[in-house]
């Protein structure tokens, strides 16, 4: 081999060894770096979509709790909110009257929506909800759009909600109708208890739903009405809250005869 050949041969082997060394080191370090499929998409979903889902769940939880709290405030108050008590007043033990001395004071159920909306405003001050509506067991509302920005992009989502909370304020319509019937049948009756026993629905209990007992005070009878549709709502402040049957406390003054034309 002459000098030129030797030089060529040496250069060739040097390059050869360098390539093998590079490949060997790369393999030892975990192989060639190939692009991870769907990396951007997963990052986008994790940093934006999941973040949004968690936020929405948090909002839904606040909204659900608010609706439940208002329902539990109203039911023992005969359907009245604390700020707007019955115009007929209350009995000596604090039960809201639906009928007193010829005046009918039925609960204004639309107040439930107003109260829920004002509480929501306090609990989620950064959000404003429009067209809030209780439709059967669905509570829904339109929220503004919210945007989440991360290093992989921007995600805009609607904060409108649609929650099936398993309770309907429509139940008050049934209770109102039943109260109306009781007033028509038994107001002014001499044998009040026997009239009520005959005419009140099964889910209307006297005084207490646990230990019903007929008590009247100058014709005023207190009722504990079990939810006719057997609606249950969570009670308490624990994570796993027990759900209890909704019961309504109300009183009717049956001393005076009821005149529906008044």
């Amino acid at each position: 081999m002459n000098k030129k050949g030797l030089l060529l041969s040496l250069s060739f082997w040097l390059v050869f060894i360098a390539i093998i060394a590079y490949l060997g080191i790369t393999v030892m370090q975990g192989g060639a770096v190939a692009g991870v499929k769907g990396e951007w998409h997963i990052n986008f979903l994790t940093k934006n979509y999941l973040e949004a889902e968690q936020k929405l769940l948090n909002y839904d939880s606040l909204i659900y709790n608010t609706a439940v709290n208002v329902a539990w405030e109203m039911a023992p108050n005969g359907g009245f909110i604390i700020e707007n008590p019955s115009p007929c007043g209350k009995t000596s033990n604090g039960v809201s009257l639906w009928y007193k001395e010829g005046t009918l004071c039925l609960p204004p159920i639309e107040k439930a929506l107003e109260k829920t909306k004002s509480l929501l405003q306090k609990k989620i001050p950064t959000k404003t909800y429009h067209n809030l509506e209780f439709d059967k067991t669905i509570f829904r509302g339109e929220g503004e759009k919210e945007t989440i920005s991360s290093d992989v992009g921007t995600y805009t989502f609607s904060t409108s909600f649609f929650i099936d909370w398993g309770y309907s304020y429509g139940e008050y319509n049934q209770l109102t109708g039943e109260a109306w019937q009781i007033l028509l049948q038994c107001s002014g009756a001499e044998e009040l208890q026997s009239c009520l026993d005959k005419n009140k629905p099964e889910h209307w209990k006297y005084s207490s739903c646990i230990t019903p007992q007929f008590v009247q005070e100058k014709g005023v009878v207190i009722f504990c009405v079990e939810s006719p549709k057997r609606y249950v709502l969570p009670v308490g402040e624990e994570l796993y809250r027990p759900r209890e049957l909704v019961t309504y406390n109300l009183a009717l003054d049956l001393f005076y005869a009821f005149n529906p034309t008044q």
């Binding site: 393999v27 975990g30 192989g31 060639a32 994790t46």
Partner: peptide, 24 residues
Amino acid sequence: LVSLLLFSGIDSAHKESKDNVAAF
């Protein structure tokens, strides 16, 4: 070496991709 390099690279990329989807 080149084959190993490419296959291990692709394999680890696939694994990472699947792990990311599983975590999500």
